[in-house]
Design a protein around this nucleic acid. Structure first.
Lengths: 343, 343
DNA sequence: GGAATGTGTGTAAGCGCTTTCGTAAGCGCT
DNA sequence: AGCGCTTACGAAAGCGCTTACACACATTCC
């Protein structure tokens, strides 16, 4: 079973089975050109010896590679960890190992990490962070990915990017419209937005959806406060504080992700503002804890694990002539954090 | 910058710089034996061409490998994703790529995943899931890891295992004592435990700590209900429901992780049992959302990201003669979900 | 000044596997 | 029996890199 010194190699297995390493290789990799008898024997011997082929040697020789890369902003963030869960699930099913990198939200890191993944000859790379509105931001990454694709690599992104690759698109625009319509339908007119950096396409898209809903109701986004802060829990706190201080008449806050909504709720609790009686709060994403907050958060559900699954599946398909895009649905989830404004 | 067909190889760089591939290799890998002049030129040319060395070829030739593996139960679970965040952080700092596998909580998967990591010749593997009380459960994994270590691999686990390797130990026993002492000090005597599978060492250890606190107060764990259910949010719901139904006099519930506590709170909310007035609830771990629940959860904070960091750092150190263990601190975090029982 | 050192460079031997290619063997047919 | 055909198998050529090892060429020392 366990070997003491040197690892077991293919030749050891071949020898033990009394065949050439070519035959052993074919038997173990399941390729054609071996009799069933030999294949069976080799596999048996390999199992008995506990042999596991060296993935590096394999992909060096065969050019194949059995791993894929996933790039996220921060794996500790539930939004990304749920996406990662989807990716890992599909990966395991397909017999692929997944290398995860996180940029820690520092844009410069992205290039470094993408390079590392490419150096590891991953079969595909999945990029899950939000893109930037300004296409120039990711020029270097785009360039790198182009080379990667040129030599047979596959790339898929989750969310809008300017990378010209296959993409799984969360329903950011329609979702933004839906949640805004919901808040409007409750009767709110003095609505404020807690937004992440407007440079992020995710933020821009959700806001665009909101704008659609608002103009349908005869309102203009430009007339409403859109407070920009980091796209995190802490950013939510800061945004909420500013809304309270600078726009005291506000009756509803739409946070552009759940994390910010959680931060907003924290500030409201601290300041003794009852939710939803005095202030409605809505989020976006429906991370797992949203339903357990106090009050439970009204939000838009995005199928995060599914986003991850779809992205990997897409990347694993043979390359298409033109970038594919695949939209995913969203669903309004009304819970306790929103209600009609006090009359 | 970008290449069309075949990837750029070391020979291309060497040629472009007018040196041998040996010199180029030395220059790029930073090893000794090249003049500064040549090293600089090679690096310059490489950067200009956008050359990135093939990690597979590198580790096959050099035996080095620049990646590590992390095994968790479920990456979508905040407990694990925060650990992963710590691991990825250190990994990035050390220039290592991290392969993450999750077992999806199916024990059989563990062996498969460990093998995959070993096949990828990772430098180290970190196992973050809880171990099992019964050592036999992981015999095959242990065997596999022994072989891995025999050929120079490093292994570290987070939590108690019977794997005989370096370990970072969360403060499960002392933490169990602390949280139980807290509940006792509020005056509760009719305490119930919502526990994950008793097969898990994490659960067993936390319970052992609870027992210490109880006997110090003249109580016996055996006299108190310990309801076993899956170590998840859903398990927490089931456990809470049973406690309510079968032990109606209970005034405080100690859930053995935050996830279960969240489930318990959900059931209490549904059934209209006010927390903490009628039922105190305590958790364990202090995942990021614990403070944002309603009511905010009293719990024991474990430094999860740090656990991940420590584990990787430990695994990267040269092997010691005997397995190292490193304890991490815990801290009681009292929030709104616990209070004195109604007199 | 020649041996003993040290440094920088190139040549070539692998790392453990896959895969092409050549050969041998098995098959059905004339 | 002899012909082509298919199929099973092994020898050997790499995959892209690192790293002995060999070899100059400067130094330094007696």
């Amino acid at each position: 079973m366990a070997q003491q010194g040197g690892r077991l190699r293919l030749v050891d297995v071949a020898e033990a089975a009394g065949v050439s390493i070519a035959a052993a290789s074919r038997a173990l990799s399941g390729s054609k050109g071996v009799s069933d008898a030999i294949a069976a024997r080799v596999r048996e011997v390999a199992a008995e010896l506990g042999y596991v082929a060296d993935a590096h040697a394999r992909s060096l020789a065969g050019g194949a590679s059995t791993s894929v890369g996933l790039l996220v902003h921060e794996i500790g963030d539930p939004y990304f960890s749920e996406i990662a869960s989807g990716v890992l699930g599909v990966g395991a099913r397909e017999g692929l190992t997944v290398q995860i990198c996180h940029t820690g939200r520092e844009p410069d890191n992205e290039l470094v990490q993408v390079r590392a993944l490419i150096a590891n000859r991953v079969r595909a790379v999945i990029i899950a962070g939000s893109g930037f509105v300004d296409p120039r931001t990711q020029l270097a990454v785009k360039e790198e990915l182009r080379g990667f694709q040129g030599s047979g690599g596959r790339v898929a992104v989750i969310g809008r990017h300017h990378l010209g690759v296959d993409a799984v698109l969360p329903d950011n625009v329609p979702g933004g419209r839906t949640i805004t319509e919901h808040v409007l339908s409750l009767g709110h007119r003095r609505i404020a937005f807690a937004a992440g950096s407007l440079e992020l396409t995710t933020v821009a898209d959700r806001l665009a959806g909101a704008e659609q809903a608002l103009s349908a109701a005869g309102l203009a986004l430009a007339d409403l406060p859109v407070v920009e802060a980091p796209f995190t829990r802490d950013g939510g706190k800061r945004a909420m504080a500013r809304i309270l201080d600078e726009h005291p008449g506000t009756t509803a806050v739409i946070a552009l992700n759940d994390d910010m909504a959680i931060g907003a709720l924290a500030v409201l609790r601290e300041r003794g503002v009852p939710v939803p009686e005095r202030m409605s709060v809505a989020g976006f994403d429906d991370v797992a804890v949203a339903e357990h907050l106090a009050p439970a958060l009204t939000t838009v559900r995005l199928p995060m694990a599914e986003l991850g699954e779809q992205a990997l599946l897409m990347a694993l398909k043979p390359k298409s002539a033109r970038p594919r895009r695949r939209a995913t649905p969203h669903r309004l989830v009304v819970r306790g954090s929103t209600a009609a404004p006090r009359s």
